[in-house]
Structures are given as structure tokens and as C-alpha cells.
Amino acid sequence: MMIFSLLILGAPYSSQSVKTALRFANASIETGNSIYRIFFYHEAVNSGNELLTPPQDEIHIPNEWQAMARDNSIDLVVCIASALKRGVLDSTEADRYEKPASNLAPNFNLSGLGQLIDASVKSDRLITFGP
């Protein structure tokens, strides 16, 4: 049994990286391994955008992550610096920057790179997906 953390870089729906990461995370859990943290960085921060509206016959990436996080208590961390400049904000940041709305999906948290360093130190393996 291994403890994994995932670093994801690719944009949802533009690159395969987020979908592959999702499959890897599901397979890890199914085989009795555990996931310590998923860190969304670079273009992958949009995976936490609640406003993503894919066609109904396509996988809904934010929903898939949310379900996994909820069922397995996995920490979904979106890099705050990468997210803000790409327009992914939680309500605290939306208030701070006086924006009209926030769009970070439930179960995702905005936080800093310290969470990535912590994940790399505390997991047996850190696996990068993308860009």
C-alpha cells in the first residue's frame, strides 16, 4: 500500500492530463492505495471552476473530483496564485478583490505552494500529470 499525491498541470478539456489523473486516482483507491492530496497547478486550476459546463455526454470534471474527494476524504488543493490570475476565486478572494462573483466548486480549497511541498514530503510518491 502506497500513499500518493498528484500534481496536475493540464487544462481540463484541452489536455488529457486531468482525465488521466482522475483515472489514476480512482484506480489507486480501488486497489487499496491512498491519496494524500491532489494539487491543481498551472492550467489545471480550472478543474475547480464550478462554472465549467461541458456537453451532457462528456465527463463533468469538477463533479468527478468532488465526488472522489467527498467519498474518500481527499484534499483537493487549487494553487491560489495560479487560480486568481486565471479567474478561479472562492468567496473570500472575490470579496478581497471586490469581484462580482466567486466560482470555486465545493470541496476544492485555494491554498499556496506550501501544500504541494508538504504533499511531496509526506507521500510515498508524487506523480505529475501534464501539462
Binding site: L9, H42, G112, L113, G114, L116, I117, V121, P131
Partner: peptide, 20 residues
């Protein structure tokens, strides 16, 4: 060309801040 160069260095700076 991409922001990956900068984002890699940001990880390096975070490592330095956490004395890794």
C-alpha cells in the same frame, strides 16, 4: 512562451521558504 518556467521557479522559492 508558457508560464511553466515561472511556475517551476515558484515551486523552488516555496521549497526555499520551507527550508527544504
Amino acid at each position: 512562451g508558457t508560464s511553466l518556467s515561472r511556475e517551476a521557479i515558484d515551486i523552488a522559492l516555496a521549497c526555499a521558504a520551507f527550508e527544504q
